[in-house]
Design a binder for these strands. Structure first.
Lengths: 317, 317
DNA sequence: TTGTAAGCGTTATCAT
DNA sequence: ATGATAACGCTTACAA
C-alpha cells in the first residue's frame, strides 16, 4: 500500500506538503506541487479515507431518515436509495436507514430526511445535531431537493388540452402533503386558465382503487375523457378500466401518469408520464449533504429538478 | 465522544483489557469482564469503527461487481442492492458498484459478483485478490447465494396441473444462463412426470413480447391453457393477451409468474407467482462476505433460499 | 491473565 | 511556503 510518506520520500518533501497538495493545493508553491503530483501518479497513490476520517473525527456514516410508511418494493424509493448510495460512494460514505420507530438516530456525519409531517420539524428535525438535507419542499429554511411538481402536472394537463380534451379529471393520492397540494394546484391553474371544469378525485395510491373509480366515471358515457393522474400506479388502473369497457385509448380516453420510474413502461399501451429524475435527485441529496458537512453546516439553498413530459401511446396514436 | 480509554479508566483496567473484552471476551477473567461491560454501559460506549479499520488496514468498502447488462430501474435489482446495503450497514461498510467496463476493481475488502458468463471465471473472478461471494449458482467452488430455481418452477407447474390443466406452456427468457436452464429443467421434470407435452417458448424479458407470443397461442382456440412464466414481467403480458381476446382468467387461462417482487401486485387479476426473497438474499450475501473477510477468506459453503408459491387470482378464483 | 509500547495513515498546530 | 511533532482511537506484539 502506497502512503503519504512514500509519496513524500519520492518527491523529497515532507508529508505535510503532500497532504497540503491534496487538500489545499493553492497553499503550495507550483514547483513542489508539480513534483508531488508526479510522485503520486508514479506511485499510483490512493488516499486512505479511513485515516483521514479518524483524525477528523468523522464516522463516514450518513443516515437516511424515512418518516413515512414506505413500501420498500416501490421502485420509486428504491431508485432514490440507489441514487443516494451512488452519491455517497464517491466519498466512501456508508448509508444507514432509520425510521420513525428507531429510538435514537445514533452517531453520524449527516442526515437526509424524507416524509416529514408538520409536527416532525419541531420534534425531530430541529433536534438533529449533524447537518440535514431534506427530500421534498419545506419553508422552514432547511436545504432541500425536490422536483417541480406544479410544473409537472401543468405540462400533463396542457398536453391533454392540446389534444382537444375538455373533460379532464384529476386522480390524486389522498395524502395531505405538500407534493400533492402542489400537484393539485398545477392542475387547477391550467383548468382555470382554459375555462374548464375542475374534477378532483382523491384516493389511495393503488391501481385497483383507481380502476374502480375510473370505471364509475367512464360508465357515465361522456364523449371523450382525459385522466391526469398523480402517479403511474393510478394511471395503470385507469388504463385497465378503459380497456375493460372496450373504450379506445387514446381516441376516447387519454391518460397521463406521474413518476416515470418503471411502471410507465410496463403498461400497455405505454404511459404518457411526467418523469421525475429520481436517481439524480438522490445523488443530488448526497452531494449536497457532503458539501454541507465540508462547509460545517453552512446554508446551501435548494435544488429543484425539472420534470420531463414523456409522450407515449396512452395519449397519442 | 467516549473512547476505549474512558472505559478503561472507569473500570480501572488497561485499554487492552477493554479491547479484549470486545474482541475476545473469553481471554479475560469473568470479574474484569463484568467490570468492563458495566463501564461500557454506564458510559454508553460505541466502538469507533474507523480507528479499528485503520489499524487493521481495512478499507471498509465492498464492491458489487455486476457483469451483466442491468436495468437499474428493475425492482428486482433494486431490492438486491437494498438488501446488500442493509447487510453491510450493520458493520459500517460502504458499497460501491463496479461494472464490466470499469478498468480496475480498485481497493476493497471483498467483492460480491453477479451475472458471470463462463469465461468470466478465468478472466475476472480468479484474478480477484480479496474474498468473493457470488450471487447465483456456480460449480467452480466459490461460495454463493441463490434461490432454488428448479423447485420454484416445479411448484408453479404442479399447481396448474393440480388445477386440472394439461396444456401447459413455459414462457422463458432467452438467456443461456444457469438460472434459466434450471427453471426449464424444473418445468420439464414435472411435465414428464405427468405424461404431458412440453412446450417451450423463449423470448426477451418484456411484457410486450410475451403479450404478442401469448396472443398467437391463444388464438389457436384450445380448450384450457396454462402459462408458466419465468418472470412476472412475462406473466403480465400473457394476462393482457388473454384479456384482449376476452378469455376468462383463471377459468380458461391460468398464469403463473416468477420473482414476486413488485409487478405481481400491480397486475389485475393479481398474479400467482413464485416469490424469491430477494432482499433477504442480498442481506445474506453481505453477511456471508463479511464473515468470510473475518475468517480470512475461508470457504463457507452456499446458501440456497427456498422460494414461495403465492397463489392469487391468476390461477384461482 | 493483564499491561506497556508502538504504530496504522492522516491532518492540526505550531514553528521556522 | 514548508516542515516537525503530536494526536485521532484502536489493535498487534511483546513483556510481565
Amino acid at each position: 500500500m502506497v502512503t503519504l510518506s512514500d509519496v513524500a520520500k519520492k518527491a523529497v518533501v515532507s508529508k505535510m506538503t503532500v497532504s497540503r497538495v491534496i487538500n489545499h493545493p493553492d497553499k503550495v508553491s507550483p514547483e513542489l506541487r508539480e513534483l508531488v503530483y508526479k510522485a503520486m501518479k508514479d506511485l499510483n497513490y490512493v488516499p486512505n479515507f479511513t485515516a483521514r476520517a479518524l483524525v477528523q473525527k468523522r464516522t463516514q456514516v450518513i443516515k437516511l431518515l424515512i418518516l413515512e410508511e414506505m413500501d420498500t418494493t416501490e421502485p420509486y424509493y428504491m431508485n432514490l436509495l440507489t441514487g443516494i448510495a451512488v452519491g455517497l460512494d464517491k466519498y466512501h460514505y456508508a448509508l444507514q436507514l432509520v425510521t420513525r420507530n428507531s429510538h435514537e438516530i445514533g452517531p453520524c456525519d449527516g442526515v437526509i430526511a424524507t416524509g416529514m409531517r408538520i409536527e416532525d420539524y419541531e420534534n425531530i428535525i430541529e433536534q438533529l445535531e449533524p447537518p440535514v438535507v431534506l427530500f421534498g419542499h419545506n419553508d422552514k429554511g432547511y436545504d432541500f431537493v425536490d422536483v417541480d411538481n406544479e410544473k409537472g402536472i401543468q405540462m400533463a394537463t396542457q398536453h391533454v388540452i392540446d389534444l382537444g380534451y375538455n373533460e379532464i379529471l384529476f386522480f390524486g393520492i389522498d395524502l395531505d402533503e405538500p407534493f400533492m397540494q402542489t400537484r393539485i394546484k398545477g392542475y387547477q391553474k391550467m383548468i382555470e386558465k382554459h375555462n374548464l371544469n375542475s374534477h378532483l378525485f382523491m384516493m389511495k395510491n393503488s391501481s385497483h382503487v383507481s380502476q374502480a373509480k375510473a370505471t364509475k366515471q367512464l360508465e357515465k358515457d361522456e364523449e371523450r375523457i382525459a385522466f391526469v393522474c398523480a402517479s403511474d400506479r393510478l394511471a395503470i388502473g385507469v388504463v385497465r378500466a378503459a380497456q375493460a369497457l372496450g373504450l379506445l385509448i387514446p381516441q376516447q380516453v387519454a391518460i397521463t401518469g406521474f413518476d416515470g420510474v418503471f411502471l410507465d413502461q410496463i403498461s400497455s399501451p405505454k404511459l404518457t408520464t411526467v418523469r421525475q429524475p429520481v436517481m439524480e435527485m438522490g445523488e443530488a441529496l448526497a452531494d449536497m449533504l457532503l458539501q454541507k458537512i465540508d462547509l460545517d453546516g453552512e446554508r446551501l439553498g435548494n435544488r429543484i429538478f425539472q420534470p420531463e413530459l414523456i409522450i407515449r401511446e396512452s395519449t397519442i396514436k
